[in-house]
Nucleic acid binder design. Sequence first.
RNA 1: GGACGUAUAGCUCAGUGGUAGAGCACUGCAUUGACAUUGCAGGGGUCGCAAGUUCAAACCUUGCUACGUCCACCA
Length: 1006
Amino acid sequence: MTIDKNFNPAAIEAKWFAHWEESGAFRPERPDAEPYTIVNPPPNVTGNLHIGHALDNTLQDILIRHARLQGKDALWVVGMDHAGIATQMVVERQLNERQDKRTNYTREEFIEKVWEWKEESGGQITQQLRRLGCSMDWANERFTMDEGMNKAVLKVFVDMHKEGLIYRDKRLVNWDPGLKTAISDLEVETREINGKFWHFSYPLEDGSGAISVATTRPETMLADMAVAVHPKDERYTDMVGKMVRLPITGRLVPIITDDHADPELGSGAVKITPGHDFNDFDVGKRAGFAASEMLNMLDGEGRVVQTSDGLIPDEYIGLYRFGKEGEATNARKMVVEAIDALGLLENVEDRVIQTPFGDRSNEVIEPWLTDQWYVDAETLAKPAIDAVRGGDIKIVPKSWEKTYFNWMENIQPWCVSRQLWWGHRIPAWYGPEIHKNHIMKRTGDDEQPYNTEMNPTIFVAETEVQAIELASRAYQKKNALPNDSKVQVVRNQQESFESILPAIWRDDDVLDTWFSSALWPFATLGWPEETPPWNGEVARSDGGVPPVDRAQGSLRSHPSTTSGGPPPRSGAELLARHYPNDVLISGFDILFFWDARMAMQGLHFMGEVPWKTLYLHGLVRAADGSKMSKSKGNTVDPLGLIDQYGADALRFFMAAMESQGRDIKMDESRVEGYRNFATKLWNAARFAQSNGIGASTTLRAPEAKLAVNRWIIGETQTALDKLNAAFEELRFDGMADIVYHFVWDQYCDWYLELIKPVLSPLPFRGGAGGGASQPNSDSADKPHPNPSPEGEGLDVAETREVAGWVLDQILVMLHPFMPFITEELWHEMGPRSYDIIHAKWPEPRADVDAAASAEIEWLIKLVGEVRTAKNELGIPPGTKMDAFVRDASDATKARLQSQSAALARLARLENVSTDDAPDGGSIQLVVDEATFVLPLEGVIDLGSERARIEKAIAALSKELAGLDGRLGNANFIERAKPEAVEKARADHAEKAAEVGRLQAALARLG
RNA sequence: GGACGUAUAGCUCAGUGGUAGAGCACUGCAUUGACAUUGCAGGGGUCGCAAGUUCAAACCUUGCUACGUCCACCA
């Protein structure tokens, strides 16, 4: 097999992903290996892959593939989120397009439509994640509304209700009039808008004057229940306790004192509308109003409704709060006009107002008094705070800890009920509160059905049958019903009306989507059941990892991969092995929404943290630094980038740019650069292949004799050590940087160049130089036969072995970042009995050979000096020159001997002689102790060479001056670390000597 | 009002006490044996400002400025 001349990412991506997935490669069974687990943040079923997913999932795949290569039992849980509001909106929008609407259907019918939509067009993102190369456990894909998740959700709700951690309460919620549901604090986004500040004059009832109040929400005055002033505000001392006659409604309300009133603001008096303002609600409670007494003047869509005291004039009923498109008038406008007409409008100021918006609907949030379900987050937060404080959860980067603590320590009750149809329906049933005589009476007559609004009794249970049992027991106990009365399943009031037992009916609301995703780290692993997976299928029945050849003690011998075959995957075992998860990768934007809630629920139900490390990454921003958004039209489609540059390039970009604690600015030229990097690797492999280099057979570094081979083995070990350290610290940018430079600079630019003279000692074109003659080959792709004499045969064999071994290490090290090209080249380089996805992470166990390193570094320096000098003197790079060396040590002489072929090839130094250089113009190069003299034979201007050397002397002198300054400072000598002083002295001596040699060279030039 | 982050080459970013690096861009040179999605060489930065600590500061401390983000009930 020959590697194609051109690297075509698209072809290999499709091929390898299909192969991996079909062969079950993403979930090798390694029951004896150390588990490693990541759960993927379930993307919305409505979602498409955006650039943020590309970052998030690339980072996870790097860790998972790395763990897999390390032989761990790596599990990456994947699934989708039902995304309550978003999904319901999508399906409703589709209905609207057909002049249809949700309310034309029953709840069951509508939900059926959502499921249909989900099956047909939902979850496109799962295909898109595959294009990115994500090695998730696709065979066990989950859904936050699948059967298993539903069981988990029900148990959690019921248990927490029993413990008092979930309760129902009537209070102000953030109500979204667009979506007509309550939402949580986190889903509210405060924005600044240009508004007004209206100053009203409220007349006192006794006619003794008026009190001035100011508001940004004039329409809410229809439900005002008080006017508050600060207790210490002496301006109003006399008025406190008096009554105000409100304009328009004529309602009589008291002037009260409350610390909330700010004497500095407006007149210092503030109108109090407990039913439509969070502050006023608290003031109202302090003033003694019960929640049930607080006046409500709006319906769920933000239209005026009559308050319970019936004081709002009819013409206001039905108007929107502050107008909707197409509305001629609205409550705000009418209220202001009416007050103005009464002469009670004092003035109107322009003012920037902090206004709450629903993050999905973009509607202004209305604080609204309703019954909702709440989670006692404060109680749950405590263990989650301790877990981070005590180090059971490590947050990376650490700077986010403070934000986490700040939020958790001030956490508010979490409103989890949503007035939607799509979601986990709340497992609560209601029954009317009734008494014995009431029942007796009802059993006989045919009165109206129960008033369900009246004090319902709540029964929380996992199933309706259980709820009925609870209800039955409760009523029997409370009402002393005869013990022989039968428990009947009653589904509606009419039915119960005919029975002795009361009807119960289920709560209409569903749970916040985040309620179920908070259980993701353990509910996806089988909790609360201990049986096989929910979907009833045995995980990946089509077989596991192909058998691997363990015979050779080589890369193939993967300790943790045994035979293929269907893996046992019991819930209990899964949970025990994979909980806690190892790391969670998440954007900081969902730290509160998701991460914190997983921490709380995991600790509560599992008694252990959900993950040991929480890694938070930033946002991917547009090239100009702005946030990407569909509405701005500045999004970058990751699939487009994959089409253009390949998935490997995009992934490498994400890794390279992921620096802890920082956002990523999109920079397409860097994606292109990493595509070029992939091409470079591709061509290096082609070169290797065409020179008879193939797959290695050993995990350990091969034995080598040649300095260049000993050097690259040491470099491989060094690069690997650095890479391992970067993985340890989750430094993705560091990982990418290390691999990139090792491959390109060390392996390609130097090593492959340096072994060319060994592998094919060709004569220079048209040159008279030695070397075995090699007939011009017509194909670069053919392996060159080794034409060398006997002794060189061993060198060639060794070099091929080392070059192939290093290339294999590169492919494995690079695989987590660039899975596709590495898998392709892995197989192209030779027959393999297993895929690179299951290879073993490098363990060269090689020592760095100091002597070999020194020799190659010397060689690199000398070659560099020659090239630079030629460049600066305008000598064509291909010009062959002879060299005469002065003051060379024996070691240098030996190196000149052993590296003569490399010097000839890379520096075009034909002969290096230790004889005295002939008189005349020459290039003078100082490398370490030796000076190399390259006669120019009048080719160039002596003045140029003189100038070049003077420039070098000047640069060195500047450094010397700095060192002189330090060494001349007594404080430095006395107080600096001895190593620093020693190093300064050594540097000084070395540079001084080099200046001396350059000056001598200059002198020789005459 | 709190909290956090960022400020380093033209651009995008690394660099956590010993006189600054990468990628892209730029300049010059190179074109039959891996690669122009290339090679070789080069130019380019008083590390936001100020003060302090230190023998020594891009790096530690404090203050300031600019930009960004999150949290918070200012009607």
